[in-house]
Amino acid sequence: MSQSTTASSYNYAYLDEQTKRMIRRALLKAVAIPGYQVPFAGREMPMPYGWGTGGVQVTATVIGPSDTLKVIDQGSDDTTNAVSIRQFFEKTANIDTTEKTKDATVIQTRHRIPEETLTDGQILVYQVPIPEPLRFLEPRETETRKMHALEEYGLMHVKLYEDISRHGHIATTYAYPVKVNDRYVMDPSPTPKFDNPKMDNCAALQLFGAGREKRIYAIPPYTKVQSLDFEDHPFEIQSWDEDCALCGSKDSFLDEVILDDKGNRMFVCSDSDYCQSRRDDSISPPVEHTLAQAAQMQSVNSEASK
């Protein structure tokens, strides 16, 4: 076994070609049956389960030298795990990367869909922790697969109804269940429900990889994706009273940034590329501020208003 101790070089994009073929077969099946969870023989990856091993396997399988990759986590290209995954593909697939949504051919994401509308030919790869939307209603895989097969989704509707009777709202704010192509109920991964409408009739191919749970599913381009709701309680997305403190956006998903221990806070776009390009395109302030400057202004303003 002595030769095994010498450093060996890995295949293009880390996975061996047999594994890629196996994953491609699963992807083809997933695209053919939108929203259906296809079991696949997920491999151990050189990053931990929970860090996006499913998404990384899907990306490694669909990516080629001519692709341009963007990786986001929480909407941002700069979060540590997004940086780490981007570096992994730079190293193993020798690929061009970008932070610009429109320049990317493949976008791997955790917890967000970019604000900018995706276009034909783009692929959005989601990292999925728990692919089964019914899991927290029924922990057994044997049962949930049966429920999907029989299109037995009553339990999910009862859950949503109970939310309304208890809280007055459907108390699901992320991983909000959707029905794909009028057939399978699907977990959109823990994206905020704010992003659900972007999945509907999306021009891009959406691929979902759950590494630990070893499931792949997909939404082909221009497929109907409907968030579950009731006639008298229609689905609605989150909105904020504030605008983005950096770019002034009124219609993007905002992250709350705590400024001090006196309750001062500000809101900024979660999608860092969207925010940056709005600032680049805009002519009027407060666009030229860095986040830190904006924060300072914000706390001065709120001090003054007291």
Binding site: P48, D73, T173, A175, P192, Q238, F253, L254, E256
Partner: peptide, 14 residues
């Protein structure tokens, strides 16, 4: 251990 990764988008929603 993955719950130590950023979850601020989901948390914001909650």
């Amino acid at each position: 251990e993955h719950i130590k990764l950023p979850h601020y988008v989901d948390f914001q929603a909650e």
